[in-house]
Every structure is written in C-alpha cells, then in structure tokens.
Nucleic acid binder design. Structure first.
Lengths: 187, 187
DNA sequence: CCTACCGATCGGTAGG
DNA sequence: CCTACCGATCGGTAGG
C-alpha cells in the first residue's frame, strides 16, 4: 500500500467516525504519521479526498446492481441478488460505505450533482426490478418507489450496526433480508 | 415563539442541512438576525443546543413506543402502531429527527452514553414486540434482533426522502410500511 | 517530506 | 442585544 492509499484508508475511517467537517487535515496527518503540509504531496485537497471515496464506493455499488439487473433470473431472485451484492459492498468496506452514505453532502458542484444523479440511478434499478416482478405477477402490486426506498433505507443502515467480527456473515444477513422483504413477518 | 425557541428551530434546520460541525454560531446568528455573541444570552453553548434537540426528539419517540407497547392488542397490531407512531414523529419533525439520527455523535460525555442507552432501549422495544409475536405463534421464527434493526433502519431513513408536501400522508406511508414488513413482497 | 507561515474563521467571553 | 476581542485552529501554500 503506497502512501496515497494509506492516506485514503485513514481518511475514510476518520471521516466516518468524526464526520468530514470535523476531521482536520492535521488530525489526518498525525494519524498517518507525517506533517499536515506533507499530505498535499499526495492529494489535491480535502474535498478531492472525499470525492474519490464517494465515487469509488458508488462504482462498487453500480457493479453489484448491474450484475443483478442483467442476471437471467426471475425478479425475486434478481432482488435477492441485488440485496446480497449491496450487503457485500457494505460489509467489505464499512468505512467507505458510511462516508458514501453520509458525507457526500459536503461535496461541492459539479460533483454534488453528479453524485446525486448516480444515487438516484442506483435506486431506480431496484425500483425497476420490483416493477418487473409486479408486471410478471409474482410480486404484490405495491408502490414500487416507496418499496425501493424502504428496502434501500434498511440496507443503508447496515454499516451502523454490522460487526464484521460477529457470527453473522454478510451472506447470512443477506438471506435474512431477502426473506424479510419477500415473505414478510406474518405466518 | 420566543427567541430561544426560534434559535432552536433554526439550529435544527441548519444542523440537519450542513451538519453540526459545519454549522458555525455566526451562521446561526445571521440566520436568526442577531450577532453571534447575542446567542449566548439564550443558550449555554453550541453543544447544549444539540443536546436539547437530540433528547427532546428521543422523548417523542419514547412516547410513541410506550403507547404501542402498552396497547391491548396482538403483536402484529402493536408493531403496526409502533411504526405509525414512529413515522408520525419523523414526519412532524423532519429536521429534529435528522439531527437525532445523525448528529448525536457530536455529543460529549456524559450525554453521549446517556443518548446511546436511550437509543438501544428504543430498539429493544421493537425487538420485544417481535419476540412476543413469535412466541404467540403469529410471526415467523425470525431473528428478532436483525429484524428490529432492519425495520428501524428503514424507518430511520424516511427523513431523507419524505416530502411533507407530497401526496403521501404519514398515515398512508405507515400503512405501506406495515404491509411490507408483515406481508412481504411475494404474492 | 519538513519548517514556517498565510488569511480566515472558530466557539465563546468581557463589559456595557 | 451589541462592540470588541480572546486564543485556538482551520485548509492550504512557499520554498527548500
């Protein structure tokens, strides 16, 4: 891992723990083990660091949803796969996901608009899977927008309580999520 | 509305929009229409403002869950009521809820620990309703902890996309949520 | 990668 | 509720 990657890893963790605005470049430099001024030999600016974290994480989510969306499966299996892929991205990168989900708002234009557009596109993929399931008659005729928002909302909070060292694997968690969403709680 | 209440309302909105750390007392004072120094005639400190917002919002959530938990109903109806109450708190106070959900981490001790304890207690109430439903045989034998976390996660993101001026009322949203969680997506 | 430093801004207080 | 101000800290640059 070169110094730039190291800076980014540590920044991810600090941005997650304290928030982007409350993390100073001096704090970051100290954690890395260099002087604040030296950071700028590796990065352009504080915001550039945030931008890279947010957009790289977005790419990971996109890869997952593309896999689910193009898989030759029925919509229920596609939805399960999309959930599994999403949870895997989060579980593999808890800090990056948390920054992606909460710190993006400190981006400035033009990145802010670009980021929002990506985020919306991602949600629409979930909505489309649900709509396909409804039109094929395997899902109940629900409000696909509200459902996609609700599902992603539940998924988006995982970084907040998921413990990688716990006994619940990402796969087991994904299976429970799919079951919850597809089958419901009632017997 | 006296000046103190006004400061608090505006602070709530600004803390939500920019985050606690990125909101300066000068920004807040300008929005209120006074000088920064004058804020301190009404509040003790920036953190005290945050503390009041977070704890008052916690009280609102507690009131709702207490109502649901003590209602003479079957667990499925209790869960629906708890969801409805939660959504109503969020919908009635979108800014305060967002601060409650995301900015509490800027609290310092002893408030931080107190806040975390309250948050955990709240989630446990949901878990207990689910456990009661399982033991009474009306819910599937799921992992009540994962399910309560998932349900609250979905509920906790509502402030992020709910538009009070839209056509979806809090009641209608609550009905959809309950249906999603109890009945699932599969036909 | 460092020392030295820039102008700007921070939360908050003194005193009226 | 204001003016005036405190020491601390911010992101970032110059120059080596």
């Amino acid at each position: 891992m070169n110094r730039k990657e190291q800076i980014r890893e540590i920044a991810q963790t600090m941005f997650r723990e304290r928030g982007y605005a409350a993390t100073s470049m001096r704090d970051l430099a100290t954690a890395v083990g260099i002087e604040a001024a030296s950071l700028y030999n590796h990065i352009k600016s504080k915001e550039d660091l945030l931008k890279e974290i947010c957009f790289d994480c977005a790419d990971e989510f996109f890869e997952g949803i593309h896999k689910a969306k193009t898989a030759p499966m029925a919509p229920d299996a596609q939805l399960s796969l999309a959930i599994k892929e999403h949870i895997q991205v989060v579980a593999n990168n808890l800090d990056g996901s948390a920054v992606f989900l909460h710190e993006w708002r400190f981006l400035t234009e033009p990145y802010l608009s670009e980021f929002k557009a990506k985020r919306k596109y991602y949600r629409l993929q979930f909505q489309q899977i649900i709509e396909k399931g409804i039109s094929e008659g395997i899902f109940k005729p629900v409000d696909a927008k509200v459902y996609s928002l609700s599902i992603l909302s539940a998924l988006n909070w995982i970084y907040d309580w998921y413990k990688p060292e716990g006994e619940l694997s990402p796969q087991a968690l994904a299976a429970q999520f799919s079951y919850l969403i597809l089958e419901g709680l009632n017997k």
